[in-house]
Computed example of a mutant assay.
Amino acid sequence: MSTQDETRWAKWLRDDGSVVSCVEKVKVMNENLDEISQMLQDAFEDGLLMEVNETQLRQVMQQMVEKLVNPWPKGKA
């Protein structure tokens, strides 16, 4: 994994502030975010092509993130 791969999103931290240093965990997290980013961009562009208001599109996407639910109780993940 290159330095760019390791830093393209964030330095991943645990709740206690320590760094997630497992190469495979960081790789999976970054790959997941790459996929989500591309899907969001595609949906955003589709909406704009369908003449949906840009501000509304952004608000709906932000609301989706805000509604995410943590399925694991604190300290169990």
Rank of each mutant, 00 (worst) to 15 (best):
M1T: 09
S2A: 03
S2R: 06
Q4E: 13
Q4L: 13
D5G: 04
R8C: 05
R8Q: 06
W9A: 05
W9H: 12
A10Q: 14
K11P: 03
K11G: 08
K11H: 08
K11M: 14
K11R: 15
K11D: 07
W12S: 01
W12K: 04
W12C: 00
L13F: 06
R14P: 03
R14E: 07
D16A: 00
D16I: 00
D16M: 00
D16R: 01
G17I: 01
G17M: 01
G17L: 00
S18I: 02
V19A: 07
V20P: 01
V20G: 02
S21N: 08
S21K: 09
S21A: 15
C22T: 13
V23W: 09
E24N: 12
V26C: 04
K27A: 10
K27C: 05
M29S: 10
M29P: 02
N32T: 11
N32F: 08
D34G: 05
I36K: 08
I36N: 04
S37A: 08
S37D: 10
Q38E: 10
M39F: 08
M39P: 04
L40H: 09
Q41H: 14
D42L: 13
A43R: 06
E45Q: 15
E45T: 11
E45H: 11
D46T: 15
D46K: 15
G47E: 01
L48P: 01
L49N: 15
L49T: 09
M50G: 10
E51D: 12
V52T: 09
E54K: 13
Q56M: 11
L57Y: 03
R58F: 10
Q59S: 11
Q59R: 12
Q59T: 15
M61C: 04
M61S: 06
M61V: 05
Q62P: 05
Q63D: 11
V65H: 06
E66N: 11
K67I: 05
L68F: 09
L68W: 08
L68D: 07
V69I: 13
N70K: 04
N70W: 00
P73W: 02
K74E: 02
K76A: 05
A77V: 03
A77K: 04
A77R: 03
A77Y: 03
